[in-house]
């Protein structure tokens, strides 16, 4: 029983990370039809910039250092996402494949730059003692970082839904996901919504990068790329453009992955997620086109 609880909550913690990456990807795809390969790079760059920013604070209160890092990661992610959209995506609005290719270039170049600047060895994060400890829940010793991640993901989900349902920009984005041409035809500046969506995606990716560092205890240059692939899978299974769908799919994917990796063999879980994707796509092949 305690193992099941542990796997379930650890799975949800991992799912929280997937959701943070996938929510931005899903919004960007839904509105702009851009498959953002640079999302993993935003994740990595934000985590490393935050890691650098807190190094001078290493001797102070670790909680303060951690919170400073969190803010730096969020700001870095948001700013990078915005710059990416304004300078690289905007000139290519007329060329959808070109947009994907540019994000591929950014993904390769940014990760190479991080490796060049920091080396490929993992860097230890500065964590408050609470985050290295664990809590006793239903007979399982659950690391506190898992609980933190679940809480943050739920908060981001709530904030995103509030933003999409209650604000004017949210309305434009939701309408744009439904029918972009109609929104432009009504005289609404969809391009500004594109920048907003990329900034939100960048913020979520930056948050995910920093929290992944907290979850694993260190940051490393390749984590973003490997998480990105699972986030893609989550986005497709959850339905492209749907934030709630991403949240549910992230939880399902991560829990399936954790359980099979534990009970079958390491790697079987990762493998089965791919099969899950193939099954999801083939059983309802029209989902992405209408989303």
């Amino acid at each position: 029983m305690s193992t099941v609880v542990l796997l379930l909550l650890t799975g949800l913690g991992l799912g929280a990370l997937y959701f943070l990456i996938a929510s931005g990807l899903s919004l960007i795809w839904g509105l702009m039809r851009v498959l953002n390969f640079a999302h993993g790079a935003l994740f990595t760059v934000a985590a490393y910039v935050a890691w650098s920013a807190v190094q001078p604070l290493a001797n102070g209160d670790p909680l303060v250092a951690w919170l400073v890092g969190l803010v730096v990661a969020i700001v870095t992610g948001g700013v990078c996402g915005m710059l990416l959209e304004v300078f690289l995506i905007r000139p290519l609005y007329a060329r959808p494949i070109g947009q994907i290719l540019v994000t591929v270039g950014v993904a390769l170049a940014a990760v190479a730059l991080i490796e060049g600047a920091y080396g490929s060895d993992p860097k230890q994060m500065i964590l408050p003692p609470w985050m290295s400890a664990s809590t006793h829940i239903l007979g399982a010793d659950l690391p506190n970082t898992r609980l933190l991640l679940i809480a943050v993901a739920l908060a981001v989900l709530a904030a995103l839904l509030m933003f999409l349902r209650r604000t004017r920009y949210g309305l434009v984005i939701r309408a744009g996901v439904e029918n972009r041409a109609m929104v432009s035809a009504l005289g609404i500046n969809v391009e500004r919504a594109f920048t907003v969506v990329f900034t939100i995606g960048g913020i979520a990716a930056g948050l995910a990068g920093y929290l992944a560092g907290t979850y694993f205890g260190y940051v490393d240059p390749t984590r973003g790329t490997s998480m990105l692939i699972f986030a893609f899978i989550v986005v497709v299974i959850g339905g492209l453009g749907s934030v709630t769908g991403s949240a549910i799919a992230a939880a399902v994917v991560a829990i399936v992955q954790q359980f099979l990796n534990f009970y079958a063999a390491p790697g079987v879980g990762d493998f089965s997620v791919v099969i899950l994707l193939a099954a999801a796509l083939l059983l309802r092949p029209r989902s992405g086109e209408s989303a």
């Binding site: 290719l101 591929v104 270039g105 390769l108």
Partner: peptide, 15 residues
């Protein structure tokens, strides 16, 4: 970093 140079070169080409 070769991959950085190639990545940037690639972005410039695409643009």
């Amino acid at each position: 970093e070769p991959l950085f140079i190639l990545g940037v070169l690639f972005i410039i080409l695409v643009l």
